[in-house]
Amino acid sequence: MKQRIAGMLVLVLLAAGFADAGDKRPARVALPAIKIEKGEKCVAPVDEMRRDHMKMLLHQRDRTMRQGLREPLFSLKNCVECHAGRETGSVLGKDGFCSSCHSYASVKMDCFECHTPLRQKKVAGKP
């Protein structure tokens, strides 16, 4: 059922996308910039990440906060390490990995009110 709804949603979105493409005006909402700067592959397949990254983050958040389990795999810190932009070092900003997609999807993020959006380690080969 969920999948069917998701499928219908995708269809609607696609239709909306084509309708928008037919329009001569430039797209009002910039497409998300998905540039991955570091790491070979993500901690889970892409479709799963797109769908469930918040579940993973929430689960890890409570484990770390409440139990002191600092498994790095699904930690927000780990996300930022790979996904922060090469120039900005941040997942926020115009082409930021998190912010560009979230503004496209119009979903408000609350993570970076408190957490730093900046990569902590230097990227190899950064100019």
Binding site: K77, V80, E113, C114, H115, T116, L118, Q120
Partner: peptide, 14 residues
């Protein structure tokens, strides 16, 4: 708040 440390999240209103 800005410039938080990665291990120490801090934010307004808490």
């Amino acid at each position: 708040v800005s410039g938080q440390k990665a291990d120490v999240p801090r934010g307004k209103g808490t």
